[in-house]
Amino acid sequence: MNRALLLCLTMLWTLPATAYELSPEEVAPGVWVFEGRQEHFTRENQGDIANTGFIVTGAGVIVIDTGPSARYGRAMHAAIRDVTREPVIAVYITHAHPDHFLGNQAFPEVPIVALPATIEAIKRDGDALTDNLYRMVGAAMEGTDPVVPGHEAIPNRYKVGDRELKFIAAAGHSGKVASDLMILDRTAGVLFAGDVVFHDRAPTTPHADVSAWIAQLDALSELDFRVLVPGHGPVARNHDPIEQTRTYLRWLDAHLREAADAGVHIVEFMNQPLPDRFAALAVAREEYKRSVAHLYPPLEQARLQPLERP
């Protein structure tokens, strides 16, 4: 009796993380989205915080981002098989952040495609990013290793099955060089914007060039589409998330420059309250603090003048 109880307890203790509950939503004919939670990485959400998706083209399925872990990738692959009999023919990775590419192991038979800067970044930082996610997410990461995309994406228009797709290299979120891949399904009128656009969720900036990002968002306003899939936050049927992301970035940029001009030390304003219009964004406080840490030191240094020797 006691031994049975013990065994039972041991099993509970060592039980692997619960399965990801992934159910895709069809946002336009043949275009499906798995919406992540608007949270930071936790053990509870198992790293499922970003949006991923797929397009059933008639000539096979193309997958856009693979999520935070091998197990997420496998759950995603299974959910795709529930929707269509078409096989996955390619995986596209929008950028080199760990919540978007660590499910690559679930697609061993198909080409994994990304922009050259993304491939470089995953080669360089993949292990460190993976380690950090193991630390934050824990058991759900079991068996996850970074897989470097083997094929370079070339921005252009392509005909795939019954779809006309446009690959766009976007600058800003991952740096000055255009290293975020956006995929526009012109046939269905859907834009997978990756982390170039956030919706009701504060943008992340660890590798951002804010000026380049704002310019990219200006250009994006001109693009023709009906459905917008942001990297994080709910799918939209208008251009509003572009404006939301741009407004936040403009404020952040001006706010940081003003503080640097006044000689304010970084920790003096990191803990100040956010304006109401931004405080309502998901994870606003955490992302704001992180953005200050990423973006402020270069601005501070740029305010200093070379000293002449006595």
Binding site: H40, L129, M136, H207
Partner: peptide, 9 residues
């Protein structure tokens, strides 16, 4: 010692 998920050393 570690920040958010995208903080590569």
């Amino acid at each position: 010692a570690a920040g958010g998920g995208c903080s590569a050393p």
